[in-house]
């Protein structure tokens, strides 16, 4: 490749880069046009798994406690409820962290 046919390439690249940069900062100054929904899918999946993991973890813990202590369904019920609560606690913490990261990035702290 000679020098001559590289120059117009770079010019076109610069123009494209400038256009993309403008499009990027134009919408909300954060992610590109498709970056936002992908991050939202990721966050949703994260929260969903957190909630389900709480229920599963609590149920398993209760089941094995019952099998060990031979106490019927007592611990299963108790741990299922506490596990669901723990899952929600973890999900809540994740959302809080997400909120903090978002306000850190955009520079405008949110209330709450």
């Amino acid at each position: 490749m000679s020098e001559d046919d590289r120059k117009p390439d770079f010019g076109a690249f610069d123009a494209r880069m400038a256009r993309l940069k403008a499009a990027e900062t134009g919408s909300d100054g954060k992610a590109g046009p498709e970056g936002e929904p992908k991050a939202a899918t990721h966050a949703g999946l994260h929260i969903g798994i957190e909630l389900v993991a709480g229920v599963i973890g609590g149920a398993l813990l209760g089941y094995f406690l019952d099998a060990w202590l031979d106490t019927g369904p007592l611990w299963l019920i108790v741990m299922l409820v506490l596990g669901s609560a723990a899952g929600m606690l973890n999900a809540h913490r994740y959302i809080k962290r997400l909120d903090r990261e978002r306000s850190d990035k955009s520079g405008t702290p949110k209330a709450g």
Binding site: I49, V52, G54, G57, G58, L61, L89, N90
Partner: peptide
């Protein structure tokens, strides 16, 4: 306190399920 302890204990579950499920 029990909720906090369980939320600590289920960390490996959510951590592993997330990767495997994805």
């Amino acid at each position: 306190v029990p909720i906090e302890i369980i939320s600590y204990l289920i960390r490996p579950i959510s951590l592993s399920v997330r990767l495997a499920v994805n």
